[in-house]
Design a protein around this nucleic acid. Sequence first.
DNA 1: TCTCTATAGTTGTCCTACAACTCTCCGAGT
DNA 2: ACTCGGAGAGTTGTAGGACAACTATAGAGA
Lengths: 248, 248
Amino acid sequence: MSIGKREFKPDKNKASLSNQIRDHMRARILNQEWQPGEKIPSEFVLANDYQVARVTIRTALRMLESQGLIDIRHGSGAYTTNFGKGIRAGLQELRSISETIREMGFTPGVVIRASELRLPNKAEAEELRISLDENIFYMERAITADGKVVAFSYDTVRITDLSQNVINKFSTGSVFKALEAFGKHPVRAMSEIHAIKSELIGWGPSKPKSGLYLQLKQTHFLRDGFPIMTGSTYFVEGRFQFIIHRTI
Amino acid sequence: MSIGKREFKPDKNKASLSNQIRDHMRARILNQEWQPGEKIPSEFVLANDYQVARVTIRTALRMLESQGLIDIRHGSGAYTTNFGKGIRAGLQELRSISETIREMGFTPGVVIRASELRLPNKAEAEELRISLDENIFYMERAITADGKVVAFSYDTVRITDLSQNVINKFSTGSVFKALEAFGKHPVRAMSEIHAIKSELIGWGPSKPKSGLYLQLKQTHFLRDGFPIMTGSTYFVEGRFQFIIHRTI
DNA sequence: TCTCTATAGTTGTCCTACAACTCTCCGAGT
DNA sequence: ACTCGGAGAGTTGTAGGACAACTATAGAGA
């Protein structure tokens, strides 16, 4: 089936239908298939387009509303919200940076500067709730969009049963995909946000001259509440636009 | 009717039922009537307790899930997350900065540097969706905790029906309280987050030497979707800790 | 021209039913 | 005594239909 210019095929093995539709519609919004401020089709029409029940569409729409992408008005319709341009991400959504970059129409990439198996320091062991003699996987990466660095990342992953070919996965792209490769799906993260100016963070040819970064110091958790990854991502100021939807 | 220790009476004149139930259940979570990590009653039971349809409960639950307060597992149930307390200081909650400061055990204060009625510039008029000949209220403030500045704020308020004594309220403390004084309750805000280094932002005796700020460029909206206030708040790096809860 | 009303369109809520998934418990087999 | 697997109960996900509540618009009437 084709909806707009995009294909939509429900995948039985993956997330729930409403979650798949939410992601599909998010892509349509971010790619401005639906213009900012524009009214999107009614729930009835969408239910027909996607060939699902109206309640399924509603669930997806409420999630998009919670994330600030649309604005639902009783008796009137749902309208996409107005944003600026550039790469942007709702901070409260835990999503792969690479995926976000791809959805914005750029080509994501990863450059690994260093990666190693080593023992954690005290802070890392505490964050990951492991003992000091349990190995962790540490890596330093640069995330790029169309070849230009948008963020530098320093992360440690808790890996009890890590084989070499799984480690290799981390080098090829999204950390989330690599984690999924051995059945670990982080579902939430706690982040501290800081403004940082330092010459020591960036590296490589597209290291920013300003040295100005938005730091996300975060720990990712699995569904059962256990931490799986901790570290800091430094977003180069001006190359990535962060949005937060704040509600009462 | 009594649910837990809390009363719940649907108010026909206010928000939708599911929104009222969402707020009611959020209070139960934040007050730890449901302990962190605990399983909350099933949708069926909640629907009976609140005397509404299951779909209404579901809508409320999905919103709470989007805000990271609960975790819904297919076939199992919904569980409160382990971060009930921390979220309150979180960025995604639209709350008065002064109130947050007070909750953290400091004494909040406000210093007004400038305030005036004037015409909006083009960007301001667009953000507030008003015409260029409609007056706005502009102010420059410093928000303090125990006398030390934690943020500098530059805001414009849309004031169609604003009397002088209401304007005075803005000088005395929380902007939210002042807005409520004439029946305007912002319910959500869209924020861009930036790292900024500038000598032009701060002022007064506790202007930071580093010139490093976390900028929240935000617009506040009323329940009907219309913007009421727009501007930027610059948090002095290191004096205010921002936490954000990210979920899928 | 202006105001009010009828009406069509859209979202909110209700109801019932069943599918899909999770967790526990109990019995068969080793 | 222990392991494994299946049955069954409980819970969330999706379906379909119906009506209530609200909004926007066009048209009638003053």
